[in-house]
Computed example of a mutant assay.
Amino acid sequence: MKKKLVKAIHDRVEKMNQAYVRGNASIFDEDEKKAIEQERKEMEKRGAEVVRSQATGDIISVRTHEQVTQVDYAILLERLIVQDEGSYMEERVFKRRATFTEGRLRADVRLLQGPVQDALNEGAGARDEQSQKHREYNRRDAVRYAERWWNDYNPAFKRFEDNCTNFISQCLYAGGAPMTAKGNTHHGWWYENSQSMSLSWSVAHSFRWYLSGAQKGLRGEEKQRASQLLPGDVICYDFDGSGRWDHTAIVVAKDLRNEPLVNAQTVNSRMRYWTYQNSPAYTPDIQYKFFRIVVD
């Protein structure tokens, strides 16, 4: 039975890989079909094309009850994208759940969130005093951290189910952004340990408003266009335009048309085009905030 499940998941991943190359979304549900079609149109506008794609799957867990078996698995999708005279590699990791009844695949859906992992070390607070001594923001160090940890989790920090803003805060901290005074979770931007941190450190909505409201230390200068951002800057996302900010990403590079490519977590992504039109969470009402990161 296990061998059959492994083969079924392998075959499914291969079909998805071909779908991502060819833009053929027929094997997906409606939300994913829409996302793939939106990305196809966006690629045409950008003058970009996926010339090679590789998807590999890894089974996370298998649960069986009577005749129904549920398989959670992760996919690493690597795509070589050519644009004009240049190219870059985009990578994404996302989780899916396949349901089999009597050995036959009945459903396969994308999971928008990953499992919660317990907090590990208590490590950031011990380094905070040192970080306060240098107040310049080193964009290269922030991007280097984003490249090192985009698909891994630094044990010095707590890991959340929605880890995107926690990850971005770590990137900015690695770049030299100073924490504020600690103690009040509703004020400032700081991390002490797995049980004590500001809301702005790990909650996308709070982080967005902290950046625009801060007067000193780490703050954000809002820009009108994504193309004005530099590596090390930040984009905040309100996917449905509700006024509640859902997601945060860091710019790590620019494409040949000067548009940002971002790294992010929750759906772990590297060198992803900034609009997120290829996400099932995307809606036509999406709102963005483009922040130039400043430390003074």
Rank of each mutant, 00 (worst) to 15 (best):
M43A: 09
E44T: 12
E44Y: 02
K45N: 12
K45F: 08
R46E: 13
G47R: 04
V50R: 11
S53F: 05
S53T: 14
S53K: 05
Q54H: 11
Q54C: 05
A55P: 00
A55Y: 10
T56F: 10
T56Y: 06
G57N: 04
D58N: 14
I59G: 00
I60D: 09
S61F: 03
S61R: 07
S61G: 06
S61Y: 02
T64Y: 00
H65V: 13
H65L: 15
V68I: 15
V68K: 08
T69Y: 03
T69K: 07
Q70A: 13
Q70E: 15
Q70R: 11
V71R: 01
D72S: 07
I75P: 00
I75M: 01
L76E: 09
L77E: 06
E78A: 07
E78G: 02
R79M: 13
Q83R: 11
Q83C: 05
Q83E: 13
Q83A: 03
Q83S: 03
D84G: 06
E85K: 14
G86P: 00
S87N: 11
Y88L: 10
Y88P: 01
M89K: 11
M89C: 04
E90A: 13
E90W: 07
E91K: 15
R92Y: 01
V93A: 02
F94H: 10
K95Y: 15
K95H: 12
K95A: 06
R96H: 06
R96S: 08
R97H: 02
R97Q: 12
T99K: 12
T99I: 15
T99N: 04
T99V: 15
F100P: 00
F100R: 01
F100D: 01
F100N: 00
T101D: 08
T101K: 14
T101C: 08
T101F: 10
E102G: 04
G103C: 07
G103V: 14
R104K: 15
R104D: 13
R106M: 14
R106G: 03
R106H: 05
A107Y: 11
V109H: 05
R110Q: 13
L111R: 07
L111Y: 02
L111A: 03
L112S: 03
L112K: 06
Q113C: 03
Q113S: 09
P115E: 15
D118L: 12
D118T: 10
N121T: 14
E122F: 09
G123N: 07
A124V: 14
A124S: 03
A124G: 05
G125H: 02
G125E: 07
G125C: 03
A126W: 03
R127F: 11
R127K: 11
D128H: 00
D128W: 00
E129N: 03
Q130A: 13
Q130H: 04
H134P: 00
H134S: 09
R135Q: 11
R135A: 04
Y137I: 05
N138H: 09
R139L: 05
